[in-house]
Design a protein around this nucleic acid. Structure first.
Lengths: 164, 164
DNA sequence: GATTTTAAGTCAGTCATGTTGACATATATT
DNA sequence: AATATATGTCAACATGACTGACTTAAAATC
């Protein structure tokens, strides 16, 4: 009865609980990206394009450096997908009014439609999970995920997420 | 007072709520992978190696086809990282006893150490978030994430996650 | 026992998306 | 006038996905 794995050992339970939580996040995130991935294929876009469309959609007029800051990728990486999105008419740039070095980014009509299409599948998925789980569970979900985000940047992220 | 964004419009609130939940998952997942990514660099491994190490660690003796099934990648993709891990002595293969075509996978001592090291940072992160959020929130987190997983595969995933 | 199916591995080529490093251009700031 | 900043661009490289074709050994079926 001194089995390490026994229910009497809280340390083991804790570790196992955490391992399960980690695995759950892996599987959930994969499901979460599967829908958009499928749609993006039809447009010959990838996940990187989705991220740009998402954050431009939620931050109309965002400038390139802010976008880089959110995505945490190099400008060379961003530029590949961004210029692609601009060429193909999903995003447009306007010169900054105060600082004319800046490029402010906006979704075009076409871009907005794609954003809607991508967002829709994710909202349907999350909405379904939320309804199934109930309001208390949703509050818990938010609390835990927020806790996963580094304290140093939590406020910044919160401001972004809750911006609109 | 007919503002679409007003608190009187439950539909808007719902959409905004879902969009926030989606964004939160994006940021949280990035934080969640950041720690391991940093460690993996020292070994010249990538996230793909981590996933293999994780699932072999949690399913000692797993065979290649099961691993492919969990990871949902092609055997060519798996083989690149797997053969790398075997060559460098983090994972070992043993021929299946019943079906000798099968290769059963195990972590070596070295592999187990790395698994511990990687798992540790994630468990610390998730553990911290759990403690901060409290037991009810944790239950909600689990409920929602599980709801994100497609019903068709939820049972299969659950069996895997809760296996040990 | 011969044939077919299955599990695993391999070779070759492609694509998406990240990286570094060097450099260019326009505009702001000092 | 000199310097710093925001953006863009060229080139080379790494990782980790993909497809498609083929091999080998062992199991299952006929």
């Amino acid at each position: 009865m001194t089995d390490l794995k026994s229910a009497n050992n809280p340390l083991f339970l804790r570790e196992e609980e955490l391992r399960q939580a980690i695995e759950l996040l892996f599987f959930a995130y994969r499901e979460f990206t599967a829908g958009p991935d499928q749609i993006l294929k039809d447009y010959n876009f990838g996940r990187a394009h989705h991220r740009v469309i998402h954050f431009v959609g939620r931050n109309e007029g965002i400038i390139v450096s802010e976008l880089l800051d959110i995505l945490r990728i190099t400008k060379q990486s961003l530029n590949r997908v961004l210029s692609n999105l601009i060429e193909r008419g999903f995003i447009e740039q306007r010169q900054g009014e105060e600082d004319r070095r800046q490029r402010c980014l906006y979704l075009t009509e076409k871009g907005r439609k794609l954003e809607q299409e991508l967002s829709r599948v994710q909202r349907d998925l999350v909405g379904h999970a939320f309804r199934e789980a109930g309001a208390d569970a949703v509050a818990g979900y938010r609390k835990v995920l927020l806790g996963l985000i580094d304290e140093d940047i939590r406020d910044t992220v919160l401001k972004r997420v809750l911006k609109p």
